[in-house]
């Protein structure tokens, strides 16, 4: 009994420590400007001024829109491409299938930084700097998602696919009517993970945007930090805006996030 009690105390302390930075960020973003470093836990005169300023004068509203467009497009198309390819790898036979699959997977061993310079050269050569294309297209080959989906689709009984073909379905029809409905949980996982990846893809978005109107939230935050070192309340308001959608998404869909990340680690 008392042992259990101590475990709870211990866990609660740890939760407070782990989540405190975000609590403090949130509280600070409601403090009046110039009092960002005050120790008051609940601001005496909470204000929405910071959010208003950040969204309008400092254009984080625009950055938020950009982040949203990039993450949504990235999520949709990378999931679509991964589903098509995964079906082919899992259920069809073709020349060099296993070799190609191995080649795709081996890209996971390459540190992300490795791609930065050549991708930048390609994207600038294509004239894509300062465009959504530049932020989305280079990351549409989601190797991890392909792996998760292929593993899952392999488990779908062939008889269902055969039955659908006999009914006259094309391959696209098979994917649409059989594969997609049955693998919806894992499709959702892949979509969420790539949405989150694009939302957090700070370094790449930093190097391919030079125009303010194309900044995403983290890029805007980096520029804002450089220009206004001392404006803590505004910085925290911008940070709150940046993490809010992912927190919301995570709280409602955490099953998918956790399932995807553990399965990838255990099988990979």
């Amino acid at each position: 009994m008392s042992r259990r009690f101590f475990i709870y105390i211990f866990l609660i302390i740890l939760v407070v420590v782990v989540l405190f930075p975000f609590f403090w960020m949130f509280v600070t973003s409601f403090k009046p400007q110039g009092t960002g470093l005050s120790m008051t836990i609940i601001p005496e005169k909470p204000t929405l001024e910071n959010f208003k300023l950040v969204l309008t004068q400092y254009k984080f509203g625009r950055y938020f829109f950009n982040s949203f467009v990039v993450s949504t497009l990235g999520g949709i198309f990378s999931t679509l491409f991964a589903v098509l390819a995964a079906y082919s790898f899992a259920k069809r036979r073709f020349f060099f299938r296993n070799g190609l699959f191995f080649l795709f997977l081996s890209a996971m061993m390459v540190p992300g930084m490795m791609f930065m310079i050549p991708q930048f050269v390609i994207v600038s050569r294509l004239g894509w700097i300062n465009s959504y294309k530049a932020m989305v297209i280079p990351h549409l080959a989601n190797v991890f998602g392909l792996f998760l989906l292929t593993q899952f689709i392999r488990g779908i009984p062939n008889s269902l696919i055969e039955a659908s073909r006999i009914d006259g379905a094309s391959e696209i029809g098979v994917i649409y009517r059989v594969i997609l409905p049955l693998s919806m949980p894992i499709v959702a996982t892949v979509f969420l993970l790539s949405f989150q990846f694009n939302w957090n893809n700070f370094l790449w978005q930093l190097i391919v945007t030079t125009k303010e109107s194309m900044y995403t939230v983290p890029v805007g935050l980096a520029m804002f930090r450089s220009a206004h070192e001392e404006l803590y309340t505004l910085r925290m308001a911008a940070s709150s805006i940046s993490i809010f959608p992912i927190v919301l998404l995570f709280l409602f869909t955490q099953r998918y996030f956790i399932q995807g990340l553990t399965e990838g680690a255990v099988k990979g």
Partner: peptide, 17 residues
């Protein structure tokens, strides 16, 4: 079916290396 994935992979992951 693999083509969209393959094209992106070749241009933005394989070729960069």
């Amino acid at each position: 079916l693999i083509l969209p994935f393959l094209i992106i992979f070749c241009i933005f992951l394989l070729y960069p290396i």
